[in-house]
Simulated assay, not measured.
Amino acid sequence: MIPLDVALAFFGAAVVLALIPGPDILFVLSQSALYGARAGVCTTLGLASGLVVHTSAVALGVAVIFQTSAVAFTLLKTAGAAYLLYLAWLSFRAGAVLAGTGKVDFLGFGALYRRGIIMNVTNPKVTLFFLAFLPQFCDPARGSVAAQVGMLGALFMLATLIVFSSVAVAGGAVAARFNRSQKAQILLHRCAGVIFVGLALLLLFSHR
């Protein structure tokens, strides 16, 4: 078991790290600005679910593969970048549909949840971050390291849910204001497309 003081210190650090502007926050903000706060929360749940994969990878030692294999790292980040470019294309296309006086159908909360999972899982840098960060709070003298990693991963997920859900609510306020105007909706979709392209490039040119 992890002592309470260690758990609290880790949780505080996780909250601070979650507050740092990064790809995941931008992703949540863009989805909630487009579709509302509940959409942002669904995306957040997807991102948090993806952290289960990264936590398991660290606990099982799979993360070492991405740390030592340039091929594995490159393949996964390329897949992630390709998915982000696909989302960018969908956003630009939605903007074009709106510009043609059409109406863009809401994707559904399930689709946004899956987007969050894929967005998170296909970023190998999250696995490497967990590999470097989580073990610092583990102690073999306290028992199974894998179990401790699992507990720390759960605390990190909780911190992510709290911070990102707050971001989703803020983004939802943007949606409530701008979605009254078709021109504003077009702008939001195009901005989301630009964000996705930027995130894809950041991931594609990232290093281990």
Rank of each mutant, 00 (worst) to 15 (best):
T122D: 00
V16G: 06
L107K: 14
V41L: 09
A184P: 01
V163T: 04
A39P: 01
Q31N: 12
D139Q: 10
F11M: 05
A59M: 10
Q67F: 03
L161G: 02
S69E: 11
C42I: 00
I162R: 01
Q136V: 07
R177K: 13
P23Y: 00
V15T: 11
R142D: 09
T74C: 00
A37V: 08
G95N: 10
L134Q: 12
A18H: 12
T78P: 07
T68A: 15
A70D: 14
L161E: 05
M1D: 10
L84W: 04
F130R: 05
T101G: 02
H189F: 07
Y86M: 04
G108V: 06
A176Y: 01
L8V: 13
G110R: 11
F10V: 09
L45A: 11
A48Y: 08
G12S: 12
V169Y: 15
A170M: 14
T44S: 11
A9H: 04
K183Y: 14
A175H: 15
T78S: 14
V104Q: 07
F27E: 02
L199N: 09
P140R: 06
Y86W: 13
D139A: 10
L87K: 03
A33Q: 12
S30K: 05
L17C: 00
H54G: 06
A79G: 15
G40P: 01
T44M: 02
R190G: 00
L29A: 13
L19H: 07
P135D: 13
A111D: 00
I186Y: 03
